[in-house]
Design a binder for these strands. Structure first.
Lengths: 173, 173
DNA sequence: AATACTGATTGCATTTTGCAATCGGTTGCA
DNA sequence: TGCAACCGATTGCAAAATGCAATCAGTATT
């Protein structure tokens, strides 16, 4: 363990983990976007992260114990990244962060629909979602063998907004 | 409003506001440490912020609508900084952040006692504390004219830990 | 009159970030 | 068998952010 911390304050230490412009964006895309591969994260994030920064942050997040890396059996040089429990427990923080941003910042509708659903669902929905993440990333059995996943609900809501936007943009089609 | 945002995602926009190493530390010291003046923030933070960075962040946080500045009547060149409602609503996020850090990071006991109390108090305590902040920074009347403030409780708990540490270090005194 | 404190500002070296191009290896298809 | 597309990165370089020390003019204290 490196001891070069600015202070032992919980908030300061948390900021030292993801108090930069990219770490939490990467985790957001893995948690809510389902991205598991380098290229998915590189091309999938709307913010356009550079490949060297992505590589650096993935390495850093692994060293911090937030991610693990494994070989993808289907592709010899493909790596698959997984969230650890440490990262999965960020879900409530991301939900709060999204809710705060929706109130105070100029968010776009299609990108805030997930935050809205998470806010409305509250802690019970977060717990269910975290359970799904534990299943997908840690191989744990689902507590409740849900017929409809939170993940799918979030994804469907996002696509519905995008579709309605496209329809409104070209009504003559 | 400047439109140079990376994306309209709530989490991204939130990170653009305080996704750096210092902004949230300053807000932490104002919210939980009661700092209102430049020098208090400069010397009071355990992390040792540089004066130019402090000046830059205070200016930035004012432009973002998180802080306001006013003259201190008691001292002609003294400036007093106040939290806006936008900043006060960060309390739940800071509480979650502290709770997460307490679980996963090597926090020091004396610095995490506040996070612990906030965690135990939960949303009701946060609301009471935010009400106190609105009173102190926005001049609003207190909903409940509490005889004991959350602020004082947090401060007393911190001092108790520091005192017990000092006692354990020199038992012969 | 001297000293210390107020909110800053300046100059400069170091570190971090962002961007574009590129790398060696793997895969799928013709 | 050739070859383009894709894989997870790496490199070089410029720009920006950061950290540090010294300094500033105005104000209060002594």
């Amino acid at each position: 363990m490196s001891m070069d911390h600015r202070s032992g304050c919980p908030i300061n230490l948390s900021l030292e983990v993801f108090g930069d412009r990219w770490s939490l964006i990467i985790l957001r895309d893995m948690i809510f976007g389902g991205r598991r591969h380098f290229r998915e994260l590189l091309n999938g994030s709307m913010e356009g992260i550079a490949s060297n920064i992505l590589a650096d942050r993935l390495k850093r997040l692994m060293e911090l114990g937030m991610l693990t890396k494994a070989d993808d059996p289907s592709h010899k040089q493909k790596a698959i990244y997984s969230l650890t429990e440490m990262a999965i427990t960020l879900v409530p923080i991301l939900a709060h962060l999204g809710a705060w941003g929706r109130v105070w910042l100029p968010v776009s509708e299609e990108l805030s629909i997930r935050a809205e659903l998470l806010e409305k669902g509250g802690p019970p929905l977060w717990d269910k979602f975290m359970d799904e993440l534990r299943h997908d990333h840690l191989g744990m059995p689902l507590d409740t063998p849900a017929d409809a996943t939170v993940r799918a609900t979030l994804q469907a809501a996002y696509e519905a907004v995008v579709a309605s936007k496209a329809l409104a943009a070209s009504p003559a089609a």
